[in-house]
């Protein structure tokens, strides 16, 4: 598939960052949800975003595929300026996969249909090829035998792995994860994290909102701490956990490791 946008902009130049955010401001009505966000994510980089509830973590990553529109600033994804118009938004969404806390699988479709819908409708891939790709990714997330089932027949962990496979079927350049394990029973968390670790090893660019600090230590290139709509601290995991610079970060880390 070509990744040249209709106006001739090309996204694939190796030097461009995966995501660039510059002076981004986001309001919900009068509530200031993101305050002057500057962030650059390199290709292949794994970013973990953490912070207290309501700090703007979801909002931040939802801006990357424009599930939330921003009021100010520039967002460039894979060389395509999102904030420049709806055509670019469509283009970016094709190349950015997202996994939600609540899975958001399509309940009226089988696992296989969930995985083939977008490639067929958006990329124009024919059914047999879409199914081949889907089975390949279902194999990768280790549930090839569930292809004909409906989401409701699967466990939470299995559903979330289907959601990951569904996103991968679009052959994304960037994957966004919004608390992918928070809705799971504890015994299913690791099967999803393992899938994400595999994906990280394969070199996928990832932005992950999670409180799984073990995952952050193991996978993240950088950890972002957010509070009240601001990026308070960005650091490599070692420095982030052993020597947080900011008081608010220390308080937060104390709270989540405290229990």
């Amino acid at each position: 598939m070509s990744n040249t946008s209709p106006d001739g902009r090309s996204g694939a130049a190796a030097g461009t960052p995966a995501v660039e955010m510059e002076g981004v401001e986001k309001y919900y009505g009068t509530f200031h949800a993101l305050k002057h966000i500057d962030l650059t994510v390199a290709r292949g980089e794994k970013i973990v975003v953490c912070g207290p509830s309501g700090s703007g973590k979801s909002t931040l990553i939802r801006c990357v595929n424009q599930l939330e529109a921003v009021q100010k600033g520039r967002i460039v994804v894979d060389g395509i300026e999102l904030t420049a118009g709806p055509k670019n938004v469509e283009q970016v969404r094709r190349d950015v996969g997202m996994v939600f806390q609540q899975f958001n699988l399509f309940p009226h479709m089988t696992v296989l249909q969930n995985c083939t819908l977008a490639p067929m409708k958006v990329r124009g891939v024919d059914r047999s090829e879409a199914e081949k790709t889907a089975r390949k990714f279902l194999e990768r997330v280790r549930i090839p035998e569930q292809a004909e089932k409906y989401p409701a027949q699967l466990s939470g962990g299995q559903q979330q792995r289907v959601a990951i496979a569904r996103a991968l079927c679009m052959n994304p350049k960037i994957m966004l994860f919004d608390e992918p394990t928070s809705a799971l029973d504890p015994e299913m968390v690791s099967e999803v994290l393992d899938t994400m670790i595999d994906l990280a090893r394969e070199g996928m660019t990832m932005m992950v909102v999670t409180h799984e600090m073990g995952f952050a230590r193991q996978v993240a290139d950088r950890v972002i701490f957010m509070d009240r709509g601001e990026i308070v601290e960005i650091a490599e995991p070692n420095a982030f956990f052993s020597n947080p610079q900011h008081e608010r970060t220390r308080t937060f880390l104390g709270q989540i490791t405290g229990h």
Binding site: N65, E90, K121
Partner: peptide
């Protein structure tokens, strides 16, 4: 609404 969000995220028109 998650159903629409998932559709948008997949690039569906």
């Amino acid at each position: 609404s998650g159903q629409s969000e998932a559709s948008w995220a997949l690039g569906l028109g």
